[in-house]
Nucleic acid binder design. Structure first.
Lengths: 144, 144
DNA sequence: TTAATTCATATCATTTCGATATGTTTTAAT
DNA sequence: ATTAAAACATATCGAAATGATATGAATTAA
């Protein structure tokens, strides 16, 4: 039941962009430094994020990334789903017909409830909420 | 964010024992047939379950397993934790001191909420609840 | 004695994870 | 023009986890 580093790093990356949402383009190198994450690994991650249209990019010297929309418009769920796929504890919830026991299945109700509970959390927290938490935590240069 | 087959199979196994909770000892072979799961794989799983004291076993011919306690006393959470470990989306929630960014961490609040939401589901469903669902689903020989 | 069963380990193929490596293309600054 | 910085693209790789299978020993009722 773990979220992969890709999902976690993507959230930190997006939160970094949200906190530094000044209009400037931020190079991935800065984020890698601040977050202490491998630059090359972050490049892979932001490539996915960029293709999804969550960020704008400018190539070349002085280039970088910025959020495509205001932090209010990104939920944690959007970001996690992009990297992790559906937030289901079992595949059968997302692949109808994948299980021929589905009609007489009892435990699927449990998995469904878990999925709903998780989604209820992640779809109701935005980057703006996290920026607020960050600011309330006092003066600190970094975060996780 | 997936639950492994061990966790899922363990729940089906325990539910099978709960449904067939007649006082008899049930060989793993029967359960493997009913659940269409590899017998040898189920053996590994029930070994863990047995060591935790969740079931009683009798060796030899006519031997098998039965629940050590009534179905009401087993939550889904107990069974999943036994196979999967803590139901946290990130390790840092369970390993204090594992992360040196913990003090200035913002995203950990998200992970904590996810964990709480999942636990709230699985710790409030018992095998007895699932047996009830099973019986309400009508006459069917099998379940998942 | 035999067959059925739990119990114990070892092994194994495949996939996933978490990266690293090696470029290319683009662009601002010099 | 040249250079350095940066996005973009793709391949590779070691380690761990996953999901089993294999082999056999110990126990017990029939």
């Amino acid at each position: 039941m773990k979220i992969s580093t890709k999902g976690r790093y993507a959230l930190r990356l997006m939160l970094d962009l949200a906190i530094n949402n000044t209009g400037e383009y931020i190079p991935i190198k800065r984020i890698a430094e601040r977050q202490e994450i491998s630059e090359k690994y972050l490049e892979q991650i932001i490539t996915q994020i960029s293709r999804a249209g969550f960020v704008r990019s400018v190539r070349g010297s002085q280039g970088g990334y910025q959020l495509a929309n205001p932090p209010e418009e990104y939920t944690v769920g959007m970001i996690l789903r992009l990297m992790e796929g559906e937030l289901s504890p079992v595949a059968c919830l997302d692949e109808p017909g994948s299980c021929d026991r589905a009609d007489r299945c009892v435990t699927v109700d449990v998995w469904r409830q878990i999925k709903d509970a998780v989604e209820n959390v992640v779809d109701n927290i935005t980057l703006a909420d996290l920026v607020k938490s960050y600011n309330e935590k006092g003066t600190c240069e970094y975060f996780i």
